[in-house]
Write a protein that binds this DNA or RNA. Structure first.
Lengths: 219, 219
DNA sequence: GTGTATGAAATCGTATACGATCTAGTGTGA
DNA sequence: TCACACTAGATCGTATACGATTTCATACAC
């Protein structure tokens, strides 16, 4: 069956926001979006409420909705949260990663390594997403998986606009990926995998924190 | 200004669900709720969408909404998630807990200890909530705090209906609380506090898992 | 020039209405 | 008896309409 209009509106907005078509701060005017979608405002409001609950959109009474703003603090908080959640997701997922998936992840990481020579940031980011998805996808706890997705989405919204790559981080990243894969292949203890997966993200976070003259994350 | 009807509907439903007035599986019929609130269905739909995004309600197209079901698997997944998030929240909060708050927490735990003699489960649970709130309230990362709240809410919905206390767990709990407070007072490393706070919850989780003949949580 | 009143336009919030869809109960034929 | 078609009632999904609120530009007073 065709999806409901509310569902369509939700998907469309979600995509436009995470893909960066609508940048942070972009005003989502109900009437305009409704017209674009060829529907009335009611389903659009509903969609926006859902996006609000996911943190992709902020909504103010009698004023309207806009794509969640991307201030530095928010970004860093999101990264910290994701470090924690994704670390756990990866550790919980690890025992269920089979040889094929492991091979796929190694291939992706190899592709990333090759990109280092002639660096292509968007492509690198894309591969990075794929890589991590392979790692946490098998997580048997759907709540955690959902939180990981939400975290990635929130980062995606903000990253596009305001944050740039840290020099040398890409190379380190590839190395850390390889280490993570080794741990998983060796069936290392969950705590060790969690620690490595978390650190992988925390390192980036701390680089940003240092750049902003803030203390490093204690976790 | 008076809250919008959509906001009122959201708060009312949220409260009724977390307080247990509406048990898991309870059908939320738009028209009925709208009539109770003295408003139309549109704001009610919006409220329900928000609750859905928080996991308190499930919604099926052309069928309607109901309070999220409370099957065992869901409950355990939620507990596992909360163990991870709350552990981090507590560790991040610890450096900001002042002497007064520490004293308050000790007092609450003392009250819990006294309840052990003539056990009163609802009161114990209430104090337990208060205790943990003191511990994680100062967490400087609002995202994490929000996730903790959502986790507690989800547990609250389910706990009321289907889960009972584990014998001897209350006494252990009080002891673990005291240990946690000692670590915080001693300004122990964040990782250590996180570990203790997580373990406090994981122990309960594993007791449930064992009772259901499932393997313990690896984290 | 600065600050405040005013009014129009834009936008939101929600009631109402009605078609679409689901559910359950009844009847019919094999 | 069972499977299926059908109908009535309940409920959902969304368009439309309109009052309420905010915003912004303009005009006026000081």
């Amino acid at each position: 069956m065709a999806p409901s209009k509310s569902e369509s509106a939700y998907r469309l907005l979600h995509e436009k926001i995470t893909e960066g078509t609508f940048s942070p701060g972009y005003r989502l005017v109900l009437g305009t979006i409704a017209a674009e979608l060829g529907c009335s405002v009611v389903p659009v409001r509903e969609a926006i409420r859902r996006l609000e609950a996911e943190g992709l959109v902020t909504f103010e009474r009698n004023v309207g909705a806009m794509v969640a703003a991307a201030d530095t603090t928010l970004y860093l908080h999101t990264m910290q949260t994701l470090a924690i959640i994704e670390g756990a997701a990866t550790a919980l997922s690890a025992p269920f990663i089979d040889d094929d998936q492991l091979a796929a992840a190694r291939a992706i990481n190899q592709a990333m390594a090759e990109l280092l020579v002639d660096f292509d940031a968007p492509r690198f980011t894309e591969l990075n997403n794929e890589f991590h998805q392979v790692l946490y996808r098998n997580c048997p706890n759907p709540h955690i998986l959902e939180l990981v997705h939400r975290g990635w989405n929130r980062l995606a919204v903000m990253r596009s606009s305001s944050f740039t790559h840290i020099p040398g981080r890409a190379r380190e990243s590839v190395r850390e990926h390889a280490h993570l894969l080794d741990l998983i292949e060796a069936k290392a203890p969950a705590a060790e995998i969690e620690q490595a997966a978390r650190a992988h993200r925390t390192t980036t976070l701390n680089a940003y924190l240092a750049a902003a003259n803030l203390p490093a994350s204690p976790l």
